[in-house]
Amino acid sequence: MPDNIYLPELARITYIKEEVAGERSIKTFRVEPVNGDSFEHECGQCAMLSIFGRGEMMISIASSPLVKDYKQFSIMRVGRVSAAFHDLAVGDVVGIRGPYGNSFPVDDWRGKNLYFIGGGCGLAPIWPVITTAVAQRDSFKNITVFYGGRSPRDIMYKAELEKLRGVADVHLSVDKAEDGWDAYCGFVPANVMDKEPSSDNAIAITCGPPIMIKYVIQNLRSLGFADEQIYTTLENKMKCGLGKCGRCNVGKDYVCVKGPVYSWAELKELPEEY
């Protein structure tokens, strides 16, 4: 029998950090394969993480493909498996299989201005692109990151974002004004409009709540971005990751195979069922 496509590799948790506290807290986990080598991935791809006895969930890989030692995942505590993940400690062993889905065409973007527009936990899926671009800083022109959360406490990757400031423009926002917050107040799409990024030789990559993505795309279009210059990622309920279990499709596409990365030019051709 060939490789069992449903059998996960074992991976040990080597690092846990709480990014956001509260009811829907977010924690970042790093996992390393228990038995030596793990699979390689590209920016934007996902992996199925397991806790045996609880189940599996599809999570985007938040670390750059250039990082070989570990894979990073930022997981919001919303469901059965993610809640169990939040109870894990460094040293615990979980299951991982992947990588699944397509990836951001980062190589095609060399020499361009990159705009990253994230909201909430939507920073994680585009984080590998940001870190990859920063690691190859000379290959790209301006790198700009827009990112917002509901409140200052909902901002993830705080320290990492601060570190980015040296090599990229970082525009943070929170939905509502709050004491001690001196950056932008308002929703992410408005922050984008406020800064008026130029569509010239640019690519915009956005990920966040569906409603945010909708307005971000609307705003980018009004700023002159062509459909081909706008990229986003879809998420859907997934069980197999292999285009077989049948639930993550949008029209003819299984998001786990043809997605999660779509240019707006591609996405707008699909039925609106996500």
């Binding site: 919303v78 469901g79 059965r80 809640a83 169990a84």
Partner: peptide, 18 residues
Amino acid sequence: SITFPVAPETTADEKANR
């Protein structure tokens, strides 16, 4: 299946503990 939320307001704990 117990992995789905009964209602949007179902909390992670409720889902996890079903």
